[in-house]
């Protein structure tokens, strides 16, 4: 992993929190089922299959069918957690997600595993960096991007009790457990993890701990950076965005495409309601061959890149 994760803090693969939570829910709620595309291993659902053999549905390598079957299971009163590599789950089954899940308002929970550039060297087909832009464009689709094991568990629980389709974007890239004062997770609400009044850094998923590191570096320079964890991209927390804009400058950072994702959602709000100088950090497009950590560093998605974007945007502040 990149320099940003080399510290003494223990690191966690959030897939573990995901499967643990789905198993816990399944014990008390027999409507919970898992649907996979030959991805029992990569989704870490082997133990779920052992415990609930009838409730693990493996359709084979067939993502369109997988999402359609998920919608059918929801029709039958189940709460399906449809899990596969997020690149195939979203790109391949997009029309099933749009028509069968969102437009039909089916109670399907789509779990995109190994999102972002976790698959590094496997290349752009296996990177899932367009998913946030695609999913948040769909009416009625809730989009969650948890940042650590605790938030992953909360997101899965919130998705299970939410009536309607939810996309939960999970990573396999190890992340530290974040320190927070609040113990409440709510769909549609962001949280402030670090106070500051000069600039707001809005991040989610694997970028949150990097944003916190950037804020610590900026603090040493006398710059107050507020770090906001925006775990729900859709519907976005407009109150928190209005507060963020009041700092006078915003940087967004996500492990995804620069166009149309979290940055796009923030920019849409700011353009209409609170124009401020912004920098949007993300990937520019199809990426060259390289490991996940190399790609993150190469494209400035690390603490140094975030801090320098904050300095730039501060210069432009009114």
């Amino acid at each position: 992993m990149g320099a940003d994760t080399k510290s003494d803090a223990a690191l966690f693969d959030c897939r573990d929190a995901y499967v643990r939570t789905v198993e816990e829910l399944a014990v008390t709620d027999d409507r919970i089922v898992a649907v996979v595309n030959d991805s029992v291993g990569s989704s870490k659902l082997g133990k779920f299959r052992e415990r609930f053999p009838n409730r693990l549905i493996n359709v084979g390598i067939a993502e369109q069918n997988m999402v359609g079957v998920g919608a059918g299971l929801a029709n039958g009163g189940k709460i399906p957690f449809v899990s596969g590599a997020s690149c195939f789950l979203t790109a391949r089954a997009m029309e099933q997600i749009k028509a069968d899940c969102a437009y039909s308002h089916a109670n399907v929970k789509l779990c995109g595993i190994s999102s972002g550039v976790a698959y590094g060297e496997l290349g752009a087909t296996h990177h899932s960096i367009e998913d946030i832009a695609w999913l948040r464009a769909i009416d009625g689709m809730t989009v969650l991007v948890p940042s650590d094991p605790w938030e992953t568990e909360q997101a899965i629980r919130a998705a299970a009790s939410h009536d309607g389709p939810v996309y939960i974007r999970l990573s396999r890239m190890p992340v530290p457990a974040l320190e927070r004062t609040s113990t409440r997770f709510e769909i549609g609400k962001g949280e402030v993890l670090h106070e500051g009044a000069d600039v707001a850094i809005i991040a989610n998923g694997t970028m949150v701990h990097r944003a916190l590191k950037a804020a610590a570096a900026l603090k040493d320079e006398g710059v107050g950076a507020r770090v906001i964890n925006m775990a729900t991209v859709s519907p976005i927390d407009k109150d928190l965005l209005a507060d963020a804009a009041a700092t006078g400058a915003i940087v967004t950072v996500e492990e995804g495409l620069k166009q149309g994702g979290l940055g796009g959602a923030v920019a849409e709000f700011c353009a209409e309601s609170a124009p401020v100088p912004m920098r949007i950090l993300g990937f520019p497009g199809f990426l060259p061959t390289g490991s996940a950590s190399w790609l993150l560093d190469e494209f400035g998605l690390n603490a140094a890149g975030i801090a320098s974007a904050a300095r730039e945007v501060l210069d432009k502040r009114a």
Binding site: L122, G123, T125, P288, T289, E298
Partner: peptide, 8 residues
């Protein structure tokens, strides 16, 4: 990094 021989 940047190899022509990508994983796919």
């Amino acid at each position: 990094p940047k190899s022509r021989l990508n994983g796919h």
